[in-house]
Design a protein around this nucleic acid. Sequence first.
DNA 1: TCTGGGGTCCTAGGACCC
DNA 2: TCTGGGGTCCTAGGACCC
Length: 424
Amino acid sequence: VTAARSILHADLDAFFASVEQRDDPSLRGRPVAVGPGVVMAASYEARQRGVRSGMGVAGARRRCPGLVVVPSRFGAYLEASRRVFAVLDAIAPDVEPLSVDEAFLDVTGLERICGTPEAIAHRLRAAVREQVGLPISVGGGSTTQIAKLASGAAKPDGVRVVAPGTELAFLHPLPVERIWGCGPATAAKLRASGIATVAQIATIPEPALARIVGKAAARSLAAIAWNRENRPLRPGRGRRSFGTQSAVRIPAGAADRLDAQAIALVERVTRRMRSAGREGRTVALRLRFDDYSRRSRAVTLRQPTAATETVLAAFRGLLDAARETTEQRDLTLVGIAVTNLAAATPRQLELPFDDGPGAALDAAVDAVRDRFGAGALRRATLLGGDPGLTAWSLADADTDEIGSARDLRATRARTADRLSDRAP
DNA sequence: TCTGGGGTCCTAGGACCC
DNA sequence: TCTGGGGTCCTAGGACCC
């Protein structure tokens, strides 16, 4: 027997659009869409007139003549997101980010100290409103599924907590596509078998359900329909991949035009990885064609890397491997993802310090050239200089753009001074 | 509503190892 | 030469989410 859990799901309302309305008072009360091209977020005023995210901007304007379309400002959204998460982290010990604008909070057992889930939810909303200036809705319940659905019911700008014992009454009338995790493919299979509501899922024996949607999906749907789902929260697990993609229009057989795209994609993704201090071992190519079919190719390297040249070489190999497909169909999207992430390992050597700082420096530089090649060494930085040990980190051209031989000499002079200070 | 850019997870099959 | 059971890693594709 496990104790009942108490989960909150906090979800910013029309996130990007709300940030725009917060930062530009003239947008408040007006229908706003964040674009360009495709609606990435629509304010509630715009939603009332039928604007939905994912719509083309042209279609959105047709439905909603007064629509104000503003360009997206991802920097501002990330900053707002960071501040919201700071508020959430102060409210509950376990916070699992689901995306930039939503998170689960585990408030199990906090009742005596912090109040009921409702009370916590109201406090959370007030804090986000005061400290970040954004509307946020909060749902609560005994499982992540219930909390997630409840926050949807709470929108906009509200709270909804599903009381223990009332979960099935809340769940069962819902159409199957409202289930978090039941998308178009699964919903279509269920509908084709005459299953339209969660209540109907609950009445079907799991083996029969498995024949419709497969074993794994059946197990998870059955658990949800009886509110037995017990997905644990995964606070602070960190990202699993870096990726970037770009919608293109490249006719069949014009694969030579892909190389410029490839370089741009690889540079963008490796730069982000380096500034996050991460490296990855698996490089994946994603292609989409004009009929929306997709192809992917992947390769796993022996060592994790975030170096542009290394990733680019791998990516070009994948493009080559996919050549037959790009020769046959028009390409509409090309993307890259790097997975199998690891923390970037600083290139670091530890050397004995027996013969004084000058000798240690020279030995370090020689050892580094030996180990990583002369070209790799652009700058050396002292990490620590305990008597007896020196530690150096190195940057190659790819991880440190300002590295140069002159910098190296300057660095050596500086570190030699510091080493003398520490020398016995 | 015909489609942007960023992610996550699952599954099946093959290769390889003991 | 044929044959277990168990495990890991990798690739391709699919589904789903915001």
